[in-house]
């Protein structure tokens, strides 16, 4: 049921959702729910839990759509950020139930996923991020990617990589600084 919308069309539908337009809300759901469930599932690794969280996410979207400002964020960025943050909140509130995934395996998962981007209109952003990531060391690139994909903290990353917490922080902080310098160019 995934509908393909341009960034502008999705922004319009989200804006109308903010005005209480239920048909527009349905359009937003159909265009984005598969992508957002992918994000939830990547973090939560449990289909039922991920769908529970996805339900919460769309209730949040319904309530908060009026705060979406297309001049400040792309609609998919806005939605992915909500989805990822809600999933992480749920992951951390249920931490003992979570099985850990070694970083190497996480790389495999991420790299094996087909890049089906039916709604991600920010292909320039994707290219720019990939170019800037390519300038980082392999291990730094890997842990930053894992941090996004799995929604884990410094502590967890350090444990997974079996390095001291300070070392992990140093890797990522220097990586973020280089990344931001490159992204802002």
């Amino acid at each position: 049921m995934a509908a393909t919308l341009t960034r502008d069309e999705l922004a319009v539908a989200l804006g109308r959702t903010g005005l209480g337009d239920r048909a527009a809300f349905r359009i937003v759901y159909e265009a984005t729910s598969a992508k957002l469930l992918g994000v939830c599932l990547r973090i939560l690794a449990d289909r039922q839990l991920a769908e529970d969280v996805l339900q919460d996410i769309y209730l949040t979207v319904w309530r908060k759509a009026e705060t979406f400002d297309p001049a400040r964020a792309s609609p998919i960025t806005w939605l992915v950020t909500i989805a990822r943050n809600r999933s992480i909140d749920r992951l951390r509130s249920a931490a003992p139930m979570r099985k850990t995934t070694p970083v190497e395996d996480a790389h495999d998962l991420a790299d094996a996923a087909p890049l089906a981007s039916d709604i991600l209109e920010h292909s320039d952003e994707v290219k720019r991020l990939n170019v800037c990531l390519s300038e980082l060391d392999d291990k730094v690139r890997g842990v930053i990617r894992t941090a996004f994909m799995d929604g884990v903290t410094y502590d967890t990353l350090a444990q997974r990589e079996n390095v001291p917490l300070g070392t992990m922080k140093s890797w990522i902080r220097r990586g973020l600084l280089r990344l931001r310098t490159c992204l802002d160019q």
């Binding site: 995934a2 598969a34 996805l54 991420a110 790299d111």
Partner: peptide, 17 residues
């Protein structure tokens, strides 16, 4: 940062609810 990092989601396969 959210705008830049959201591009990572491009590497996540969609899953139909």
């Amino acid at each position: 940062w959210n705008a830049h990092l959201a591009a990572f989601a491009d590497g996540i396969a969609p899953v139909e609810p």
